[in-house]
Structures are given as C-alpha cells and as structure tokens.
Write a protein that binds this DNA or RNA. Structure first.
Lengths: 238, 238
DNA sequence: TAGATTGTTAATCGATTAACAATC
DNA sequence: TAGATTGTTAATCGATTAACAATC
C-alpha cells in the first residue's frame, strides 16, 4: 500500500513487512511500564517479569520486541533504559508532535489537563471551538497556556504551527466537517472522540475513541454473565 | 472457559462458539448508525449501503450480522428497526445497567455530561472522589443529578444501587486500589481510563481507554510517513 | 560448566475477504 | 421470470502461543 515497504524493506531490524499493528498498539504500554521501572531504579528486567507488569504473556512480549531488533541479553534480560529508548524511537516519541484540539468542552478540557501529553513529546499548539462563550477563554494546565480560537482560525493555526495531529472533541454532527478542514489544512493523523464514522482518504490515519462502544461491549459481557448464571440455576434445579 | 458455552451452545442463532469479539466490538457502531437511519425515516437498507455508513466492508458486515441470526431479506435488505432491535437485544441494551464513576475531575465531568449514556440504557448511579474539594459537590447533566460521595461510601453505594459497571477516572496511582474495591463490592465490569495496567481476576471484564496509547500509535504512523517521504526524496535524487 | 533467558520457529487460532448459491 | 441481495462457504491473512535452540 505505502511506497516505503517497497523502497526499503528493512528500516530497522524488522523483516520487511513492517511492525504488526497489534504490536504497535502494545508498544506504548511497554514503554510506560519501562519508564516507571526506570524511575524505581530497576536496571534490568526479564521478559517474564516485564510481561507480567504489562499484563501480557511473556511469549507475546518477546515476539513483539523481536520486531524492533535484538535488544535483550540471553540469560540476563532486557536493559530497561536501552529498551525504553528503542521503543520510544520506534514510536516516534523522540521528536515533538504538534496537536490541535477542536472542541473545548468538558472532554477538551480533560485532554488539555491530561499530563501524558508533554511527557511523551506531544505539544498542544492550538485549541479551537465554535461556541462564542468558549472562544477567547484562556485554558491553562501543566505545559499548556492557550487562548481558545474561533473555528475560522483552523486553517491558519494548523499551517503556522505545523501541527500534525488533530483531535476531534466536538459533537457528532460537527465531526465530519471539522475532519475535512483539518485534512485540507494538512493534518494526516486524527484522533476522533465524536461518536461518528468519519470518511477520510487513505492517506489519513484515523483512530477512534468511543465511550459508548466501550460501555456497550461491557454490557454485552454483563448480559452473558446474567444469562449464564440463570441457566446454571436451571440446570441445578433440574 | 465460561460455563455457558457448554450448557447452551446456541442461545440465539449462533453456532455455539459465541459471537466473536471482533464482531461484538462493531455491533455498537452498527446500532448507532441504524438508529440514525431510523430517525431519518429510512425503513430498509442493503448491506452495501449500511456497510458504507459504518465504515466497514459489506462482506464483514454480513458476516457479523450472520452471527446474530438471519434478519435480512434476500433481494431486499435489512429492516432498519428490526435489525436495530436485535442488535440492541444482543448487546444487552434492552435492560438498564447502573454505572458508578470513580474520580470526578475533568474527565469524570466529561463522562457525566456525555449524552450517550441514558439513551442506551446506562444510568449513572454514583459519583465518587477522594478530594475534599470535590466531595459534596452537586453534578448535574441531562438525566443525571448527583452529589459526589467520599470514597468511604464506595462499597455501600455499589451494593445499594446494584451498579454493575465501574468507571475508573482517577490518577494512575489510585487505579488498582479503586479497582480492587469495586470488584470486592460486586462490580464485574470495569472501564479504565487511568494509564495503569490493572490486575483483576478472570471473572472481571475490563476495558481500557488510553489516550496516550492512541496518540503514540498516531505518532508511529506520522513518523513512518516522514521516513517514507525522505526516503522517496533520496530515491528521486539518486 | 550449569542455569537462565532470549529470539525464533512452527503450529494453532481467529478474523477477514471474495465469491456465489440460495432466495426474495 | 429477472434482478437484487442475503447468508454461507472456503481461502487467505494476521496474531497468538508453546516449545526450544541459541547463547549469555
């Protein structure tokens, strides 16, 4: 699909087909746990222990890490600092990424005050909202101190800041329009919190966080649990 | 794993192995889109059109729906209301589920004001926080009007309300303790927003929403894009 | 050397996809 | 009947897992 696979089959130690999506999705967890371990003064850790801390199986962890290269030592384990570095490099955390947040309601505020941004090299470079009551308000948190801009500023803000990630925290009705404008302005990565299916071109990477979906998946399992226990009761009575 | 599969191999029209996880994760999207279509007065829709609205392939949609039973009409399509009903029933949305939210910071507030709750049968039955400034505050939104309770009330609140879903919106440090207390009090489904790996027994269903993870996955793709274009430039120059 | 632990292999499992027979 | 569209089949693909040879 992407040109790069054909151009350079092995950018790192990987075997040419790129790092599997499932692995990429777990790398941030490994990275966070490794940083915590480093803070606690741990220098070396085995795949068994690290896997347990990350909530995955040791086999899966080793398989995942093998895609990055060979950074462990047989008989010893992994150097925490070294592995942490290689993961962050692979994830692209060694360079800063500008983030624009569209929609500064409760969720937008929660995102601004989220401490995980700056510590991983993300910088919030712009806040936008369409509501007159919100536009012009100053929003400050650790590492952030911005004035909410009107929507008309979107294109200029994205271009001047060079933001590469757009976060959509608007109501569902506004999401597609906002998405289109972000993409037209040059954003190629979108994180969508609005409960809407966004249509984008293939070049745009889009991730979706949907609270309602998560809750409904839990409801499904809750219901199955209830069904199970009532069925069990029937069997017991029979 | 669960007893029910052995007891009753076919609760609905499914073939005994239960509905695949990947399918369950997509059902809420189908459901939301179907409700929107119903609101727009659409009575019948083909898998091709519905799939497009949901952002999936027609083959995947039909395969997914086939796990629920046979609710379409060949040559015609799906009845929007009927299909919507069967999905909601399968997801367990036909009965109300009580939700307790622990941690009423910016994110907790965003969750309370989220409109997707009540419309899908979820009811927020309790808000808890450890911070003295927050405890006792009244939090109101559509369908919600609650006083934030101190953490000491957790067990009593869960038991008296019969809440089945616990939402953790605390800092990472507090998350495991909160999780343990929720589970001890009887909660079997947890939605975790804290950037922490929670350890729970097998009986507890846990879902995780991690903003930092989503952003880092986007950063990975951004970086790959940058690498690609610089490589392309090199090839062009050569 | 002996014990420990990685990185890789091969088998298995689950999800996706395309094609088409069934049938409205 | 002819056209349309579902539900199912079989092939493919990607992810997981367990086992173990390599090696510190």
């Amino acid at each position: 699909m992407s040109l790069s696979r054909q151009l350079s089959p092995s950018r790192t130690r990987d075997d040419g087909r790129g790092i599997p999506d499932a692995t990429v999705a777990r790398l941030p967890v490994y990275h966070r746990v490794l940083r915590t371990l480093a803070d606690e003064g741990v220098h070396t850790i085995s795949s068994d222990h690290l896997a347990q801390s990350c909530g995955v199986s040791p086999a899966k962890l080793r398989k995942d890490l093998s895609h990055l290269g060979s950074y462990g030592t047989r008989g010893v384990g992994y150097d925490v600092a070294l592995l942490s570095y290689h993961i962050s490099r692979e994830l692209g955390l060694s360079q800063p990424w500008g983030v624009v947040i569209v929609g500064v309601g409760n969720l937008g505020h929660a995102l601004v005050s989220y401490r995980g941004f700056a510590s991983r090299g993300f910088e919030i470079v712009g806040l936008l909202d369409s509501h007159p009551d919100v536009v012009g308000k100053r929003v400050a948190a650790t590492g952030v101190d911005l004035i909410v801009q009107p929507m008309a500023q979107l294109e200029m803000l994205v271009r001047e800041s060079g933001a590469s990630i757009g976060v959509i925290a608007t109501p569902a009705e506004a999401a597609q329009k906002v998405c289109d404008r972000l993409v037209d302005a040059g954003v190629r990565s979108i994180l969508n919190f609005a409960p809407a299916v966004l249509v984008v071109s293939d070049e745009v990477e889009i991730r979706k966080v949907d609270l309602a979906v998560e809750l409904q998946i839990l409801a499904f399992h809750e219901q199955r649990r209830v069904d199970d226990s009532s069925q069990l009761a029937q069997v017991m009575n029979a």
